[in-house]
Amino acid sequence: MMGSAAAAMIVLAAAGFVGVDNPSTAKNNWMLHCQGCHLPDGSGSADGAPSMVGIVSRFLSVDGGREYVGKVPGVANAGLDDTALAELVNWMLQTYDKEHLPANFKPYTAQEIGALRERPYIVEAADMRQQLLEKMRSMEAAGENR
C-alpha cells in the first residue's frame, strides 16, 4: 500500500501541478469559463482578452501582481466556488507560463482567492496591468529578474 501511495506521489509530481487536485477538472473549468475569450491555447486576442502564454506567471514576481491575478474580472467574477477557482488559477499559471513561475511559488488557496475576489477590479484592471508590466520592465532593466 505504501508503495502504491509513493508511486501515486511520483505520478503527481511528474504531472507537475502544484495546488491542483484534479487537472482534468481545472481544464474542464478553463474550457467552460475562460477559453471562449482567452482561446484554447491561452493566446488571447489583440484588442480583447490578453494572452496568458509566457507572461501570466511573471505577475507573481512583481509587487501587487499576485493580488492582481486574483482580482482581474475574469478570475474574480468566474462562476466557480473559491476552491475550484484557486485550482483553476494554479493550473492556468502552470499550464500557460510554467517557465516564469517563481522558484518559491506558493499555490493559491481557496481562502486567498476568496479574499481577493471580494474586492475585484471593475474598471481599473487595464491600468493595473499596464503598471505591473512597467514594473516588470524596470525590474528587467535593473537585472533583478533572473
Binding site: 474550457m31 467552460l32 477559453q35 471562449g36
Partner: peptide
C-alpha cells in the same frame, strides 16, 4: 469567430 461563448 475565434472568440466565442461556451456552454454544455
Amino acid at each position: 469567430s475565434p472568440i466565442t461563448w461556451i456552454g454544455s
